[in-house]
């Protein structure tokens, strides 16, 4: 017979995986709305956010209940502690998606700038890191953790490079200041999405290996 504790842990895992799937979809839609200048799609992203918020609260409550009633230890303890953090990081990624989605309409008339800066190449990388992150939440395959760290680093460097090119353009042409400012902000949020992916990879590593790798020169 399956223990009640195991049923609760399985439920938590299922909800966390569901959360990651919702976020992956949200991020993917957001980035598509951005590069395709698709304002209706961006509005869909904003509308989806409440479902994510609801699930976020459900996961928090479930963790609280397990802590209070089951007194988890060892790998169970690491999983529930990390589930709280991963849930939080995923929810923040959802918020970043909404932040970007709300600004799509401010940049959607400047598709040529977006194309010229090859923002699509950056968003493809973000799509991939988020997809990989969701994969390791489900599979706990820590062999991919290092790869996610590397991807996050590349995204950080590229988004900063594009931002500095935007700032150069602002200095040359005053009519792009408004759109460029919005794009720089969006790029900042995209970079943070990658940073959250890295955090999640660290949490998954902690669940499986019991070692804290954040704030360290890992691997």
């Amino acid at each position: 017979m399956e223990r009640k504790f195991d049923i609760e842990l399985n439920k938590l895992n299922e909800r966390l995986v569901l959360m990651s799937q919702l976020i992956q979809k949200q991020v993917s839609m957001t980035l598509e709305a951005l590069v395709e200048c698709d304002v209706p799609l961006s509005k869909q992203v904003v509308a989806n956010d409440s479902e994510i918020d609801d699930l976020d609260v459900k996961i928090d409550k479930l963790c609280q209940r397990i802590f209070a009633l089951q007194q988890p230890v060892a790998s169970d303890l690491r999983f529930i502690m990390s589930a709280l953090k991963i849930n939080n990081d995923l929810e923040r990624m959802g918020d970043l998606s909404v932040f970007i989605a709300k600004r799509v309409s401010t940049v959607s008339d400047f598709k040529e700038i977006i194309n010229e800066l090859k923002i699509n190449e950056l968003t493809e990388k973000v799509d991939k890191i988020v997809k990989d992150t969701c994969m390791i939440i489900e599979t706990r395959r820590t062999v991919f953790v290092k790869d996610i760290f590397d991807q996050a680093q590349v995204i950080k460097e590229e988004s900063r490079l594009i931002s500095s090119r935007m700032i150069e353009q602002m200095m040359e042409k005053s009519d792009v200041i408004l759109v460029a400012t919005n794009l720089v902000q969006i790029l900042g949020q995209i970079e943070r999405m990658a940073a959250y992916s890295k955090n999640i990879a660290e949490s998954v590593y902690f669940i499986v290996e019991g070692k804290i790798v954040k704030h360290t020169q890992f691997l």
Binding site: R3, F5, P72, V73, A74, S75, D76, L77, R78, G210
Partner: peptide
């Protein structure tokens, strides 16, 4: 022992 035991038998026992 209660956060990250080395031996699987210990882990299995303390997690029930």
């Amino acid at each position: 022992i209660f956060t990250n035991p080395t031996i699987k038998q210990t882990e299995d026992y303390i997690t029930g």
